[in-house]
Amino acid sequence: RSFWKGSLASASSVSTTWTELREGLGKLTLLCDANTDGSFLVHHFLSFYLKANCKVCFVALIQSFSHYNIVGQKLGVSLTVARECGQLVFLEGLKSSVDVFFRAQAEPHPLQFLREANAENLQPLYEFVREALKPVDDGEAAWRCPVLLVDDLSVLLSLGMGAVAVLDFIHYCRATVCWERKGNIVALVHDSGDTEDEENNILLNGLSHQSHLILRAEGLATGFCRDVHGQLRILWRTPSQPTTQRDQSLTYQYKIQDKSVSFFAKGMSPAVL
């Protein structure tokens, strides 16, 4: 049932990274998709962290709560239960973006920037994340490391924020979630493949330089295929591995199935063999 089936899980470095991700050692994981839909990675990390008993703040700007909940149920987690018991803090962008316009101006709202003509920063959104992942002392539920999940950051550019403002938001989240509270951040950014789209390129490259692990889902250059849905490039940028000779980058092809994703080496799809 594991997501990382097959050869991927066998690599020792992968299991080390996975332990680090689960234990929460202040890692930033960048998910990136180019010419394909990388949301399967978001669903994986959401269910992965909920199953690992982590406190999760999910900034969902793309889909509704019920969408994530349905996919989550297929992967064995209930978002409704997780939200009720306080494990999951869910910011539903589609719904609360409307709320911004129908509430008193004085009340702070995480998506306040939608209402302001010249919003310069995403500080209200950061404050929301900081509050959501605040360690609680009442001891009723001891969650493991805090996790921030964002789907996706490119939308913030489309909503009128500059790339540096989004980078500042992630910078503060890193300082609070990763460094202060030893948690993890997972964020998705689209790679439009358009060299003219300067803002998105600055965002993507700026985040790439800050992240410890980059998972890049790419569509096949040869086009659509029924048995291979794309390829995943894995790039480690861990500072614990200095620039020595290392196996820092791996590429696998994948096929998304109903409840899991199978990975195989390039050209080794079971349909071909």
């Binding site: 790439s208 980059i214 790039l235 940028r237 500072p239 620039t243």
Partner: peptide, 9 residues
């Protein structure tokens, strides 16, 4: 660059 980080140098 992203692939060849320079902080260790």
């Amino acid at each position: 660059s992203v692939e060849w980080e320079g902080r260790s140098l």
